[in-house]
Simulated assay, not measured.
Amino acid sequence: MSTVAMEQRKKIHPHKFTLWVGIGSILMMFAGLTSAYIVKRNQANWVTFNLPLAFWYSTAAIVLSSVTIFLAGRSFKAREMKQYRNLMLTTIMLGVVFIILQVVGFNELIMQGLGLGKKVSVDFLWIIVLLHAAHVIGGIIALIVRFIKASSSTTRNYTSVPVDVISTYWHFVDILWLYLLVFLIMIR
Rank of each mutant, 00 (worst) to 15 (best):
K77S: 09
S35W: 09
F49Y: 15
K82N: 12
M93Q: 04
G24N: 03
G105D: 03
I38E: 02
A78N: 13
A54N: 14
L94V: 00
L27C: 14
A36C: 06
F70R: 06
W56C: 04
L114P: 04
A61V: 02
F55M: 12
I99K: 01
I23K: 09
L64G: 11
L116I: 08
M111K: 14
V103M: 06
A36E: 05
W56I: 12
G113V: 05
W56K: 10
I100R: 00
K40I: 00
F55N: 11
G22M: 11
V97L: 07
A60E: 09
L89Q: 10
T90R: 05
L109V: 02
I69N: 10
W56Y: 15
M29T: 14
P52L: 02
L27Q: 12
T34F: 01
K82P: 00
I38L: 06
R79E: 01
L51T: 13
R79G: 00
L109H: 12
S58L: 10
I23E: 09
G113C: 06
I38R: 04
K118H: 14
R74H: 11
S121Y: 06
G95K: 03
W20E: 10
M81A: 01
N45A: 13
R74E: 11
Q102V: 10
R85T: 08
Q83F: 00
Q112H: 08
